[in-house]
């Protein structure tokens, strides 16, 4: 598995440099037992572009994120991803037996610089006081902020977010949206946010894609000025449009 990953990356990264793109995916296909999850899926992302991928459950959106994260390397088509990338999953996936700071610096050389950088990143998500806490003593929102810090500490060129706020309560989610916007503004990674929350997609992304049965059925730029406001009539119009595309009749 690990060997497949490096072979794939070498093959994909070797084909010249495309500095104008953070992600290139062309004609990506993926099937599980003859059931096609992704068909002819193509996506190009510019550096620092924030793309939200909407879809109903089973639409293949998480599968695509796994392809971009090189978690799934057995795919058809052409995929090019940056070397520095990080994933935030729906569940925080912190090692419960490692203190918060050690979770943040997981996989990095344990030097003093890295620890200080880890502490600084924890401060960015407002958890510098929890550096030595056990993950199980944190609330759901705090744990997900640690997961965000663990991703950001690597200074990723591509940040993959797999429904990262799906398990949080509504109030915590609002705070997390603000935090994510702040981190994005500061570090400018390319972001792919997989979500089923239409409002979240419109609030955060530059571009929203709707995935239906393994294909992109709608792609729309969001030109609303920041900070975006749900009471904006253009927001409501976009929301209606996207919900209809997702097969939900808006009220």
């Amino acid at each position: 598995m690990a060997r497949d990953q490096t072979t794939l990356e070498r093959a994909l990264l070797g084909r010249g440099d495309h500095h104008d793109h953070a992600v290139i995916a062309r004609n990506v296909g993926k099937a599980f037992d003859d059931h096609a999850v992704l068909r002819d899926f193509s996506l190009e992302m510019r550096p620092s572009e924030f793309v939200a991928l909407l879809g109903r459950s089973g639409s293949g959106k998480s599968t695509f994120l796994r392809v971009l994260g090189a978690l799934d390397t057995e795919v058809d088509g052409y995929v090019r991803i940056p070397r520095h990338r990080a994933i935030v999953f729906q569940d925080p996936r912190l090692m419960p037996w490692l203190p918060v700071l050690r979770n943040v610096t997981l996989g990095l050389p344990q030097t003093r610089e890295v620890k200080e950088h880890g502490l600084a990143t924890l401060a960015e998500v407002g958890l510098q006081d929890h550096a030595n806490a056990w993950p199980r003593t944190l609330s759901g929102g705090e744990a997900q902020r640690v997961a965000l810090a663990r991703a950001m500490v690597r200074e990723p060129q591509l940040l993959l977010l797999d429904e990262p706020f799906g398990a949080l309560d509504a109030l915590t989610r609002i705070r997390m949206h603000a935090l994510l916007r702040e981190l994005y503004r500061k570090h400018r990674p390319a972001v792919l946010l997989v979500t089923h929350d239409v409002d979240e997609a419109i609030l955060l992304a530059d571009r929203v894609l709707v995935l239906t049965e393994g294909r992109i059925s709608l792609s729309t730029k969001i030109d609303l000025p920041a900070p975006r406001n749900r009471s904006d009539p253009r927001f409501a119009a976009l929301r209606r449009h996207l919900l209809t595309e997702l097969g939900v009749e808006p009220d």
Binding site: A86, D91, R93, L98, G107
Partner: peptide, 21 residues
Amino acid sequence: ASLVEAARTFGVGRRELITAV
């Protein structure tokens, strides 16, 4: 397995995977 997968995506090598995960 999801923790092992997460560790791998963050570049955890074989040795750290054994000692830290």
